[in-house]
Design a protein around this nucleic acid. Structure first.
Lengths: 213, 213
DNA sequence: ACCTGAACACCGTTCAAGT
DNA sequence: ACCTGAACACCGTTCAAGT
């Protein structure tokens, strides 16, 4: 039975299986052969649907990041817009931590990503930011989100600090990382985002004053 | 000649060759076999010095990040300390953009990294930050640096925007990315860092007021 | 102690062949 | 059009053997 009357595989099914394996086993563990095995198929069959592993991973990343919400800009409040956008971005990545390197390395050349970037750019300009600033602010917010997803204490750092606590008194006194890693991750991101937005509000006043004068 | 009287290889020589290849050809291109070829040696010989490729890359990353400067904290000004630390961190990564994924994924379990984290933590606490805040601030600054290094416009995004400029009017109007990618990267990082530090200064006042009352 | 040659268990991808 | 079986050109790593 070389070909059943109804196809076994489909792009959505392949993506779903890939994401589930990445979530469960990790990004490095995934291979086209193992993915095929999970789908009861030969590795070569996958290439009838995706031209490369890279293309497949790119579309998996697209699917995950498509849940990013830019509707917070609708109200016309740029601060609320950036804040809710960044938080939904972070939430999307936090649901699939093992996929983060793919999203981070992703070219961002996807249609959906450009559409969202366009929304952000347009909303910021309408709110009164100069286009150049709008671009920089969109980039900066992404720095925070991607940096937070990548550097998460919950993924690796925690245990070692505890081990070395005698040698680094300031660290051991400070945070008890291994117990509260996820909570500190969240609080650090919230602090960074709030501080960033507070600081931007001051820049906004300065920029408006000079462009009006 | 199975073994010359003086060893051909050394850990520093292997690291230097690896970093040079990564800079020139990219991280994905590097393999133990190609690295060995560059050093006029067999791939297996590398394993007399490094137990795994991962361990080698980890030490290459250590070498690059060892140039990060935390001396800005010496003056006692936490704002100047964070700022100069973050800028030197970014500069170190910008010198080796192809290595960024290794540094970003790096467990940060290395001694030097912990030493710097300890300096940051200690300086912030001495400056009056509660330990919990000190930890979050150190993490947040790293988010910005690693995010900026990873998301750099100069690495991929730029060209596509130019291609799609008709479909995304807000984008095309805004930045002319392909021409000024590196400059926008730098300006975005500077803006993000300044806004973050400005915002932190306000948090500092609030935190001090409540802890004093 | 350090390097070699050959091997092992994997990869991503291609391609003729089958239905 | 879609899947298979076998192959190609790679990987990282191990290990007995040489000096």
């Amino acid at each position: 039975m070389a070909r059943p009357r109804t196809p076994i595989l489909s792009k959505p099914a392949i993506r779903a299986a890939a994401l589930a394996l990445i979530d469960r086993e990790g990004l490095e563990w995934l291979s086209m052969r193992k993915l095929a095995q999970e789908l009861d198929v030969q590795a070569a069959s996958l290439y009838s649907h995706y031209r490369t592993k890279e293309e497949l991973l790119g579309e998996v990343a697209d699917e995950v990041t498509s849940r990013i919400d830019v509707s917070g800009f609708d109200g016309g409040d740029w601060r609320e817009g950036i804040g809710s956008w960044a938080r939904s971005y972070r939430a999307a990545l936090a649901e699939h931590p093992n996929l983060v390197p793919v999203v981070a390395a992703g070219p961002g050349r996807r249609d959906e990503a450009l559409r969202r970037a366009d929304v952000v750019q347009g909303a910021l300009v309408r709110a009164g930011w100069p286009p150049r600033y709008a671009t920089m602010i969109g980039a900066s917010a992404k720095y925070l989100v991607v940096g937070a997803a990548t550097q998460s204490f919950a993924r690796g750092f925690a245990d070692d600090v505890w081990v070395y606590r005698d040698r680094y008194p300031n660290l051991s006194q400070a945070h008890r990382l291994s117990e509260h890693a996820a909570e500190i991750d969240q609080a650090s991101f919230d602090l960074a985002l709030e501080a960033f937005l507070d600081g931007l509000a001051r820049v906004f006043e300065r920029v408006r004053a000079t462009s009006a004068g």
